[in-house]
Design a protein around this nucleic acid. Structure first.
Lengths: 195, 195
DNA sequence: TGACTGACAGATATTGACATCTGTCATTCC
DNA sequence: GGAATGACAGATGTCAATATCTGTCAGTCA
C-alpha cells in the first residue's frame, strides 16, 4: 500500500520488546508486533526468519545494554578489589531491578532455550572479559595472584551464579541475600586457606 | 475389611517413591499409591494431610539419604582441604548420577515449591553443618583462616550452587563442567588476593 | 525492482464438555 | 475404638473440536 519509510530491523526489535514487556512472552504474537508498527506480519518475516529469532534479537539487545552499563566500572582505574566488588554488586542490582520492574520482559530472558544459547554464551563472554580486565589490572598492581588469570573470571562468574542467573530470581527476595553475597565475595577475595 | 498389619507411614512413602520413580510427578495419583499397597486412598489420607505433604515426605527421605552418604567424608580425619574437595565432588557426583538414573524422581525434587521449602531449608542446614565440621577441623589444624567459620559454610554452598542445585541440571552435561568446578574450587581455596 | 501485502496450509493454542483426582466423612469392620 | 472403607463434592486434568498463529509465497503497488 504505502512505504513512506522502509521498515527497519531496529523498529521491529523495539516494537517486539514493548509487546513482550506489556503482554509477556506467552501472549505476544508476531501479528501484534506487526500491527503496532502498522504493517502486516509478512513484513516482519522479511527481517527475521522466525519468531524465535526475533525474540533472540530482543534478548540480545537487552543483554548488550546491560553489559554497556557495567563496562565503565571495568574500565575505571583504582583498586581492583573494590572495582570487582562494585562490578558484581552492580550486576546483581541491575538484574534484581530488572526482575522487579519488568517481570514479563525478564521472564522472556529467563526462559532461554537452544535458540538463545548462542546469545547467552556471547553475553557470558562479554561479561567475563570485563571481569578479566579487572583481574589483569589487579595482577599488574600486585593486588591479585597472577594465577587467577587462568580460569578466574569464569570461576567468579560461576561462583556468583546464584546472585545474577535469572533462574534464581525467586531467591532474590529472600532476606539475607545481600549478606550471602558478601559471604561469597569474602571467600572469593581471600579464600579459606590460612596464608 | 481386613487389617492383618496396620499401614505405616514408611510403607506409604516407599510406595509413593516407587510410583514417582516410574510414572513421574505429573502422572502419579494418590489412588495409584494406595492401590499398590492394596488399600483405599482414604487410608493414605489418614497418614498425610495432602498429596503435597506426601510428596514432601518422599523428598525429605531422599535428601536425608543423600546427606547420610556424604557424612563419612565430613567426619573423616586428615587434611581438611582434601576432605572438603572430595566432599564437594561427591555431592556433585551424587546429584548428577541421580539426575541421570532417576530422571522422573529427580524431576520431583527439582520442582520444589513453598510446600517443600521447609524440607529444603532443613537439607541445606544439614549439609552446611557438615561443611562447617570440615572447616572447624581445618581451622583447628591451622589449615584454614579462622574467619571462615563466620559465614564460610553457607558461602561455599552458595558459590557451588551451579554444580549441585537441581535447577542447573541441564548445564551438567556440558563438557567442561568438571573443569569449571575445579576453577571455583581453586578460588574458594586460595581466593584472588596475593598473600 | 524491491518493499510490502494478504490468502493460505500446517502447526499451535484455546475452549468447553467430560473424566479423573483430591480430600472429607459417615459408616463398616474386627 | 481404632483402622479402614467408599460414596461424594469440588478441584483438576484430558481430549477433541475449534480458533488462532506461524511461516510461505504469488501477487500488488510505487
Amino acid at each position: 500500500m504505502m512505504a513512506a519509510e522502509p521498515l527497519t530491523r531496529e523498529q521491529i526489535i523495539s516494537a517486539a520488546e514493548e509487546a513482550l514487556r506489556r503482554y509477556g512472552p506467552a501472549k505476544t504474537t508476531v501479528v501484534d508486533v506487526a500491527q503496532s508498527l502498522g504493517v502486516s506480519h509478512g513484513s516482519v518475516y522479511r527481517h527475521f526468519p522466525t519468531k524465535a529469532a526475533l525474540r533472540a534479537a530482543v534478548v540480545q539487545q537487552g543483554l548488550e545494554q546491560k553489559a554497556r552499563e557495567l563496562r565503565p566500572i571495568a574500565e575505571e582505574t583504582g583498586p581492583a578489589a573494590d572495582r570487582l566488588h562494585r562490578w558484581l554488586l552492580t550486576l546483581m542490582t541491575i538484574k534484581r531491578r530488572f526482575a522487579l520492574e519488568d517481570p514479563e520482559l525478564f521472564g522472556t530472558y529467563a526462559m532461554i532455550d537452544k535458540d538463545d544459547a548462542e546469545v547467552v554464551h556471547e553475553h557470558v563472554e562479554v561479561l567475563t572479559s570485563q571481569i578479566t580486565r579487572i583481574l589483569e589490572d589487579g595482577v599488574e598492581a600486585g593486588e591479585f595472584r597472577p594465577s587467577v588469570l587462568e580460569s578466574g573470571a569464569l570461576a567468579i562468574w560461576d561462583a556468583t551464579t546464584r546472585f545474577h542467573n535469572p533462574m534464581h530470581r525467586h531467591e532474590w527476595s529472600d532476606p539475607g541475600t545481600t549478606e550471602r553475597f558478601e559471604g561469597v565475595w569474602h571467600l572469593l577475595l581471600d579464600g579459606i586457606s590460612a596464608d
